[in-house]
Design a protein around this nucleic acid. Structure first.
Length: 627
RNA sequence: GCCACAGUAGCUCAGUGGUAGAGCAACGCAUUCGUAAUGCGUAGGUCGUCGGUUCGAUCCCGACCUGUGGCUCCA
């Protein structure tokens, strides 16, 4: 979406617009005509197609609310019904400017005020590019196109929502109202799309998190601070056990480190004060605090003293790497020791902007399945490859195949990066090499690097189409430099190791949030908080039910017994709503033959099975982490 | 952080300038039942917080907090 704004598309690129994009872009013009009719003071900016539909940014005295949508849609329908042609008119720069100055662009007629945004956009069009104006009815708009033939093509549309957006995505620019809509070839496809959106709402992790009792965020604890409830904790623990198994296989060492560290540590790493805005404020020692209060020290002064090191304090750790580096440094290392791989489920804290927080996917405290690999220059490619393998195993086991891989490179025009450009070149080359062995397509994206090094990210989409970075592998030449890390090489000389940061899940919070949506709450048996529920037909069979429960419990299965007075239909309904994989119905027949009647949440009634046979089956399903 | 919208029982939600209601859940009693809801009863709310207007505010106004949709940001 941002691309539509930030990077001008060339005319060639625009000509390649798909039919659907063309339709949606045209519908955006229909929307604009309708808004211009209802509110003639409307000043329009951009109106591009998007993945889900289209939007048009508009500056308007009236605040558009969902209550206005029916009126807007009515006006749009009129335009569609008139079946106006989209006429393309090539004009000179002067003509276009004249029209814009008389307010004629993105409007239904001349106005008292110029079409301000259009003038601005006009100035951005390169000299050698044609300037075109599209007209449908009386609505004229500066637009490169292309469009569909007639407004009558835009009959399957819906105004979806209104939000605000900064002009050109810059927070210093005025804030516009962004009206979102969607459009499809025909009504059927539109209905299907709306249906999908409804279904997506049902699998929203915030909704399911509440219904399945997985996690809770309490304002008394703090915004963006996740409380894992028992059910959610089971899922997290299973995932951690799963990944730990693979870490042992791949030669990692587990470590534990505290949640805070002294400011000096982060001055060395470069996190403080460089990234102070995205950290929780420092924790200052009591004596220093008192002394400052006595002096009447102001906030600005305080932060200067903290930055300079005149006052010391602690920081809630924004990253785990400095702690791990200190573990590495606490021993001398020979090249024979390398690579050293230190892993920790480390909790970090970052001061995300309040408007950004949401559910488990964007939070202020989260636990990374973190590890830092210290290796020689020659080992980098192989180690990165090992990390990528791990991410693939993780995503594969969970059936998450709908992801994309991006190589985040530095933005050549930005100064936010630290370290020697030559090191960056080497690191970027190493990542490219490793990624090419991945067997998955990847895309290089300048500007997506971490401030200390390039990275490979695994990006997945949530149910409403938002992309989330999960697994990540980052090569870092910078921190080893800053901390003066070294090992003794075979030449008996000190050498600088390279660090690799990696987290296959990214953060447990975000990962589980995405996982909830991925499975729509129907976790595979190995992850399900409650794996089996035993349902008794009546009180008479509770004893046998308890026996079965005990046998499964002994085998490590998470099982409960519903011995309430409810009828079997009600018990089944409750278990279904709880998305429990297996229900075992126990009545007279089962008690007699010492069997259980198996019902699976998706497959329904699956017939009877001996208790032992069922136990073996479910234990194997769990052990193999079947989907 | 910015803009818009929202906040009523554990959950989902209705409602009104005269101190509140439903369904589900909870609890109690009865029922002992074969694959998605057995019946009856009881209890449960400082109507997000703090101020203001008013004889009177859950309702109107303001500020704040929290949430939602976006924008900006995301080491």
């Amino acid at each position: 979406m941002a691309d539509d704004v930030k990077q001008r598309k060339t005319l060639d690129e625009r000509a390649q617009m798909s039919d659907l994009e063309r339709l949606r872009h045209s519908t955006a013009h229909v929307l604009a005509s309708a808004i211009a009719k209802l509110w003639p003071d409307a000043q329009f900016a951009y109106g591009p197609p998007t993945e889900q539909g289209f939007y048009y940014d508009v500056d308007l005295a009236h605040r558009i609310t969902p209550d206005d949508f029916p009126a807007i849609e009515d006006e749009m329908r009129k335009v569609v019904k008139e079946n106006q042609t989209f006429e393309r008119l090539i004009v000179s720069r002067d003509e276009a400017l004249k029209l814009a100055q008389s307010g004629r662009l993105a409007a239904l007629g001349d106005r008292d005020t110029p079409s301000t945004f259009k003038i601005d956009l006009l100035n951005e069009i390169p000299d050698d590019e044609e300037i075109s104006i599209y007209q449908n009815g009386d609505f004229w708009d500066l637009c490169a196109g292309p469009h569909v033939g007639r407004t009558g093509n835009c009959k399957a549309f819906k105004v979806m929502s209104v939000a605000s957006a900064f002009y050109k995505g810059d927070a210093n620019n005025p804030q516009l109202q962004r009206v979102y809509g969607t459009a499809f070839k025909n009504k059927t496809e539109l209905e299907e799309h709306l249906e999908r959106l409804e279904q997506a709402k049902e699998r929203d992790h915030r909704k399911l998190g509440k219904e399945l009792d997985l996690f809770h965020i309490d304002e008394a604890v703090g915004q963006g601070l996740v409380l894992w409830k028992p059910n959610g904790a089971v899922i997290r623990q299973e995932l951690q056990d799963f990944i730990s198994e693979h870490l042992r296989r791949q030669g990692y060492s587990q470590v534990f480190t505290p949640h805070i560290g002294k400011l000096g540590l982060y001055r060395t790493s470069g996190h403080f004060p460089y990234y102070a805005d995205s950290q929780f404020p420092p924790v200052i020692e009591r004596d220093a605090m008192q002394a400052l209060a006595d002096e009447g020290c102001g906030c600005g002064e305080l932060s200067n003293k903290l930055a300079s090191g005149e006052i010391d304090g602690f920081l809630l750790k924004p990253m785990n790497c400095p702690h791990h580096i200190k573990i590495f440094q606490s021993n001398h290392h020979s090249y024979r020791d390398l690579p050293v791989r230190l892993a920790e489920f480390g909790t970090v804290y970052r001061w995300e902007q309040s408007g950004e927080l949401g559910g488990m996917t964007r939070v202020r405290g989260f636990t990374q399945d973190d590890a830092h690999l210290f290796c020689t220059e020659e080992q980098v490619a192989a180690e990165v490859k090992g990390c990528l393998e791990l991410v693939k195993i993780v995503l594969g086991t969970l059936g998450m195949n709908d992801y994309r891989v991006r190589i985040g490179l530095r933005d050549p025009d930005s100064t936010k990066y630290v370290g020697d450009p030559a090191n960056w070149d080497r690191a970027e080359a190493a990542l490219r090499e490793a990624a090419s062995t991945l067997g998955t397509e990847f895309k290089e994206e300048p500007g997506e690097a971490a401030f200390y090094g390039p990275k490979i990210d695994f990006v997945v989409k949530d149910v409403i189409g938002r992309e989330w970075q999960l697994g990540t592998v980052q090569v870092d030449y910078n921190l080893p430099e800053r901390f003066g890390l070294e090992y003794i090489g075979s030449d008996n000389q000190p050498h600088r190791p390279v660090m690799i940061h990696r987290a296959p899940f990214g953060s447990m919070e975000r990962f589980v949030g995405v996982l909830i949506e991925h499975f729509a709450g129907k976790f595979p048996t190995w992850l399900a908080p409650e794996q089996v529920r035993i349902l008794t037909i009546s009180e008479k069979f509770v004893d046998f039910g308890k026996e079965v429960a005990q046998e499964l419990k002994n085998a490590g299965v998470r099982v409960t017994l519903d011995d309430s007075g409810d009828k079997i239909g009600a018990k089944i309904r409750l278990a279904q709503i709880g998305k429990i994989p297996y229900m075992l119905v126990i009545g007279a027949r089962e008690a007699e033959s010492r069997e259980v009647s198996v019902r699976h949440r998706d497959r329904g009634d699956s017939g009877s099975l001996g208790v032992e046979a069922f136990r073996e089956q479910v234990v194997e399903e769990i052990r193999s982490r079947s989907l």
